[in-house]
Structures are given as structure tokens and as C-alpha cells.
Design a binder for these strands. Structure first.
Lengths: 230, 230
DNA sequence: GTGTGACCAGTTGTACACATCTTTGCATGC
DNA sequence: GCATGCAAAGATGTGTACAACTGGTCACAC
């Protein structure tokens, strides 16, 4: 059997259908979660289509998926609106995320190899630089990179999928609420960086369960701080 | 504020867009999970469209959602194929389901009221009748009803959504594998019915955590029996 | 000034024609 | 008899025109 995509180079011109879909999905999700499209924004299928150089049809499929993921909601005759969330709904998702993150250490944990630890060390270094100069936008983007990396500590595919779904549901709401509550974002950076150093220690000891519990505690405390200030 | 769907009676003619979508989605998902469309079946958008009295467009949206849920996979030029799963992938989903089911007792548990207990009692009675006369089809349908009912024991909406997703991913594969492994389905009925009676006891005592642990143990043992016979 | 009703611009939902791709079966050369 | 190529059928993906619907604006009666 040959490759499913014949004569495909890594940096080739015509992407497959799935790749095009994934690219548009990733782009729009990033904009929503980085608050380029804050909650309440009305997205236009037509303008998105012209921006991505395609027709409305593929854009509509992406928006339908984002609707299933809870990030937007389409209303006939009105538009496709970026969803908002009250603190109550956010709390439910956070509680679930806390428990599922704790599960990462027990469900098919992956012992990190040298390359993984080095990659994580680079992340810690990059985080140290961001503490002083970082904008909320850069901080969130950094947080996403860390999350995607740590996701590889479990080989349980469905668990990964669920965690990713819940992460993108909460991150943007947290960011917006943190800004509105005048949370000290620089202080949040610092706390996050401490967590990363603790995680690095755990990873060097190949202790996935400890790493999972550190993340779990971080998520829980992060939400508690938000609740206290709002 | 008035109803989102003005002048809507329970049995009214013109359904809203969301309802039509939900109806088609439910129908096709039922057929997949009841093995009317066994794994490998090629679904045709055109014939589904004519059956539901619509065009391909709404059907395509439903199939896209089912693809995101992992139940089908669309391949350009070939068709939309009902997915299969090997025992390894199934094991990962089962492990996750076991843990999440255990969480139901701790994340926003709902104390069952009298109406709920009565509804469950009727389910137990219905189950007793099915033990002798039931076909695999009826058994699975009954299992779905029980699952949907027990889902209401937690008020955590995201947890419900995740559990439902994982349930429909595994149920049909379990059923197919159970038939192929020549598992004694009548014996499985009986064990399931014992579980229901134990659950009824727990519900009467308002002990949601016990109910969650009973379900958890049931799911775990059910999969173990399957593994031993395959 | 105010309430009311009709129109209009803009949006999502649907239907359909066409493009692109895969499979399959058959004809043809050897 | 067999391999090979080609064409045709049928599937999903895409583009586009139109239907259905909403929110706002503006003219007009009172």
C-alpha cells in the first residue's frame, strides 16, 4: 500500500482536505481563545471565507465544529456569535478539568525521554523571559504551548481529546475574567513559572504522577484566585 | 423575553433548525450504535438525504458532527464509512469511562427525588422482562435508556457531555465484540439486572457515591469479561 | 412628539450544479 | 489466458444562487 497522500512533501503546495479544515479550525480557535474575537463577537461566514480564499462551505463546516465544541453559536438571521460563559458554568468545567488532569498520572502515563525534558527546559527558559516583558496575549500563547507539551505525558488518546476540549473552553473565559477582575497578571506569570520549575523537577525524576498532581493543584488554585477577586 | 421558538406546541409541524439537526443526528447515531449500520458500512449522503426528505447539505452537517464524535469517517471519492475500533483503542476509552463514572458521585451529585426513583423502578421491572425474551437489539436499547437516566445523577453538564460521547463510542463496539466472542448475552443480561437492583438500593438511600461506584465496577468488569473471551 | 408599520441590508440555512477523486469492470493488445 | 489501460459510475468536496429570518431605520399617521 502506498501513502494515502501520494508524492507529498512536508512543505508541499496543495494541502489535503483534512489539513485545510484543520488549519482554518486552528486559526479561528486561536483568535477566539486569544480574545482577538472576544465573547459576543459576530463572525461573518462571508468575510472569513474571502479571508481564507475559499467559499462559505468549508468555513461553515469549521464553524459547525466550533459550535459543537461550545466556542460559538450560530443563530439564523443574526450571525455566528462567540459564546460567553458565566462563572457557574466555568466552575463546572474547572472541577472536571482538575479531576481529569489528576488522571493523567494514572491512565497510560508516558515516561518522558531526554528530548522531551530538553524541550520542556527550553519552555521554562522562555517562560522566565516572558515574566517581565510579556503581554496577556503572549502569556496565553505560552500557556497553550505548555499545555500541548504536557498533554503528551499520557498516551490515552481519548483523555487527551477531552482535556484539550475542556482547556480551550475555559482558557479564554479565564483570561477575560482575570482582566475584568484586575487580577495581577504579572503575579500570575510568576506563580505559573514556579509551577513549571516544580514540573521540571518531577519530569527529571520520571514521576508522572507527581507532575499530574502539580498541574492539578495549579489549575485548582488558579481558579480559586479568580473566584476570590471577582 | 418570550420563547425562543414562538407559538410552538409539543407536537407542532415546522420544527426549528436545531431540532431537525438533532433528530437526524439521533436517528443515525441510533442506527450505528444498534448495529443497523455495522462498522464498515458505507453511508450515502444522497440516499440519507432523500430518506429524511431534505438535501445533502443538512445531512452533511450531521455526518461531519458524527465524524468529530468518532463514529464515522468520510473519505473523498469513497464514501462515509462507519468506523471500527481495535481492542486497544477500546481499552483506553473504557479506562477513561471507568474513572469518569466514578466521578459522577463527587462532581455536583443530584439527590434523586421520588419521581426519579419510581422511573428507575419501572426500568428495573422492564429489565426483568427483557432477560428471557430480549434480543441483543432490545438489550442495547434498554441499556441506552438506563444510561440516559443515570446520567441525570450529576448536574455537571460537561461531565454529562463527555460521558455520553464516550458511551456511544464504546457501546456498539462492545456489542459487536461480544457477539463475535460468543459471550453469553443472556448471562450478561442477568448480571446487568443484578446491577440495576443494587443501584436501586443505593438510590433509595440517596447514596449517589455508592451508585457511581456500582456503575464503575459494572463497566470495569464488563470489559474484563470481554477481554477474557476474545 | 410618539407610536407603528413597512421596507431594507445583512446573516445563516438549504438546494443544486459542478469539480475532484476512487473504485470497478470491461475492452484490448499481446 | 493475462496484464494493462481506460472509461464510466458513484462518492464526497466546493461554489453559488436563493430562501428564511432578524434587527434596525425611516417614513407616516395621529
Amino acid at each position: 500500500m502506498r501513502n494515502r497522500s501520494p508524492e507529498r512533501s512536508p512543505a508541499d503546495g496543495p494541502l489535503s482536505v483534512r489539513d485545510r479544515h484543520a488549519a482554518i479550525h486552528h486559526q479561528i480557535r486561536q483568535r477566539i481563545c486569544l480574545l482577538s474575537y472576544p465573547p459576543g463577537t459576530r463572525l461573518s461566514e462571508t468575510s472569513l471565507a474571502s479571508e481564507f480564499g475559499t467559499s462559505r462551505t468549508p468555513v461553515r463546516r469549521v464553524l459547525a465544529r466550533l459550535e459543537d465544541e461550545g466556542l460559538v453559536q450560530s443563530v439564523h438571521g443574526v450571525g455566528t456569535i462567540v459564546t460567553d460563559a458565566d462563572i457557574g458554568a466555568l466552575e463546572q468545567v474547572y472541577h472536571l478539568r482538575v479531576e481529569l488532569t489528576g488522571l493523567m498520572g494514572r491512565l497510560d502515563p508516558v515516561v518522558p525521554d531526554v528530548a522531551f525534558v530538553e524541550r520542556f527546559e527550553r519552555l521554562v527558559t522562555r517562560g522566565r523571559e516572558i515574566i517581565d516583558t510579556g503581554t496577556p496575549h503572549e502569556f496565553t500563547r505560552f500557556d497553550m504551548d505548555v499545555f500541548q507539551t504536557l498533554l503528551q505525558l499520557t498516551a490515552n488518546i481519548p483523555l487527551r481529546a477531552v482535556l484539550e476540549r475542556l482547556y480551550y473552553q475555559t482558557k479564554r473565559i479565564w483570561l477575560q475574567a482575570a482582566i475584568e477582575a484586575h487580577l495581577d497578571l504579572k503575579e500570575e506569570f510568576r506563580i505559573f513559572h514556579h509551577e513549571l520549575e516544580a514540573l521540571l523537577q518531577a519530569l527529571r525524576s520520571n514521576d508522572i504522577e507527581a507532575a499530574a498532581h502539580i498541574q492539578r493543584a495549579h489549575i485548582s488554585m488558579s481558579f480559586k484566585r479568580l473566584q476570590q477577586n471577582s
